[in-house]
């Protein structure tokens, strides 16, 4: 897959630094993602992947550096306004609304912009037939896999330009992992830019155009997915070869 087909960046982080009580969690983080790219971000536990995504979406504050999405500096925007720029986040651990029904959860996805809600909801149900069968079920009673689908579905309800996904395969059976990855690819083919954080490096690299490796808060390796799959360091540490 050619790397150089990248267009103007949709998301660009420059010299991003994030701290918790003086401890650096992420340091001098640089990343650039072009329109309609599917980019992977892999790395060991505690590397700072979730922290980075939470900072991009305003749930944590950056200590230094800039995050520009679609021409807007996200570090200067009220967190609840970020979704109105059409940047959605499927957080680690799903974070659905457990005491709302499946339908209500999806509806919450349109909180910031209700236009065309009914149509988008039917699209989401078409993509996730399991959710369609469970419209009136409380989200807290869904299985883990169904909750993950609901989290993705809720993000899609906002008709995002870009989606950040944090370990969508966590805790799912191999079959469901495949299903979720298929959906991520479909979403990307529909023109939505994707930044995919994964523990499952093999799967992530198999569907990504490019990828970054984050280790103890800094990007250590970056390149096309093919390059990374051939990189001996990646092979050894993340692909078990």
């Amino acid at each position: 897959m050619a790397v150089e087909t990248k267009t103007a960046p949709v998301l660009r982080c420059q010299h991003l630094g994030i701290q918790f009580g003086g401890l650096k969690a992420v340091d001098d983080f640089n990343l650039e993602i072009g329109e309609s790219e599917l980019v992977g971000l892999i790395g060991p536990n505690g590397a700072g992947k979730t922290t980075t995504l939470r900072t991009i979406t305003g749930l944590e504050k950056a200590a230094s550096g800039s995050i520009v999405f679609d021409g807007h500096d996200l570090t200067k925007i009220t967190p609840s306004k970020i979704i109105t720029l059409k940047l959605a986040y499927v957080p680690e651990g799903r974070h659905i609304f457990p005491q709302m029904t499946v339908a209500e959860n999806l509806e919450m996805g349109t909180y910031a912009d209700k236009a065309g809600m009914a149509g988008t909801m039917e699209d989401v149900y078409a993509r996730f037939p399991r959710l369609s069968e469970r419209r009136r079920q409380l989200a807290g009673t869904l299985s883990g896999g169904e909750q993950q689908m609901l989290a993705v579905g809720r993000a899609l309800m906002a008709k995002p330009k870009m989606i950040l996904m944090d370990e969508p395969s966590m805790g799912l059976s191999p079959l469901l992992v495949q299903e979720i990855f298929d959906i991520i690819q479909e979403v990307n083919r529909a023109g939505i830019t994707v930044l995919l954080v994964e523990q499952n490096a093999k799967m992530a690299l198999s569907i990504s155009n490019r990828a970054y490796v984050l280790e103890t808060g800094t990007i250590s390796i970056e390149g096309s997915a093919a390059e990374l799959m051939d990189d001996p360091r990646v092979k050894k540490a993340y692909l078990g070869q």
Binding site: L59, S80, P91, H95, F97, G109
Partner: peptide, 13 residues
Amino acid sequence: QDKDASTLVGINV
């Protein structure tokens, strides 16, 4: 139910 999820869908908590 979930403050982070609320912020993410655009609710000013």
